[in-house]
Computed example of a mutant assay.
Amino acid sequence: MRFLPLAAASLAAVATLSTGLPAYAAAPAVQIIKVYYDSPGPDRRSSSSLNAEYVVLKNATRSTIQLEKWILRDKTGYKYRFGAFALRAGKSVTVRTGSGSDGTSTVYWGRGQYVWNNDGDTASIHRASDLKKVDACSWGRSGDWTNCS
């Protein structure tokens, strides 16, 4: 009986921890893990240069996520809306700025101009159902790419 108050206090602490965690503590289902915002070489809007600018998204769950109508956007409002695309559990997809043929691990925005600002920007991914922001990644003025995870 002597340790009953200690046990009750421990249970109360566990209950507080299990219910009191903020919502952001859980990892997002779809994560932005890398943004390559400054493609190598001069910015001449060639297909290879545009496609060297990209964002990598990862499915951090154990289930396939249907990304159809999900939106990837930058801070100023450029938007890429996914077509029919299933991101399998634990897999990644690269969204390239330029043109190409979509596949199972790479999709193309189809733009003729760059999206991601070299001097700082924010990439964010939004669900189709309610346009709620799922994850975001920001960077400043240095480097060519950023690791977001």
Rank of each mutant, 00 (worst) to 15 (best):
Ser99Ala: 07
Trp109Cys: 01
Thr76Gln: 09
Val134Glu: 07
Ala29Ile: 04
Trp139Cys: 07
Pro22Asn: 14
Asn51Trp: 06
Ala23Ser: 12
Ile125Asn: 02
Arg111Thr: 09
Val56Ile: 15
Thr64Gly: 06
Tyr36Ile: 13
Ala84Ile: 03
Ser63Trp: 05
Gln66His: 05
Ser92Gly: 07
Leu87Cys: 00
Ile33Leu: 11
Gln31Cys: 03
Arg45Lys: 11
Gly90Ser: 07
Leu17Ile: 14
Val30Arg: 00
Tyr37Met: 03
Tyr36Thr: 11
Arg44Pro: 05
Asp135Tyr: 07
Gly110Ser: 06
Ser142Pro: 02
Trp109Arg: 08
Asp135Val: 00
Ser105Gln: 10
Lys133His: 05
Pro42Gly: 14
Gly143Leu: 14
Ala136Met: 03
Pro22Ala: 09
Ser149Asp: 07
Ala136Ile: 02
Arg88Trp: 02
Arg81Asn: 08
Arg45Asp: 12
Ile65Arg: 01
Ser92Trp: 01
Glu68His: 10
Pro28Lys: 12
Val95Leu: 01
Thr19Leu: 11
Lys133Tyr: 00
Thr94Ala: 08
Gln66Phe: 06
Arg111Pro: 01
Asp38Ser: 15
Ser142Cys: 08
Trp139Gly: 09
Leu131Lys: 15
Val95Ala: 04
Asp119His: 14
Glu68Ala: 12
Ala7Ser: 11
Gly98Gln: 07
Gly110Ile: 02
Thr104Met: 07
Trp116Asp: 04
Thr146Phe: 11
Ala86Asp: 15
Ala9Asn: 07
Ser10Asp: 10
Asn147Leu: 13
Gly110Asn: 02
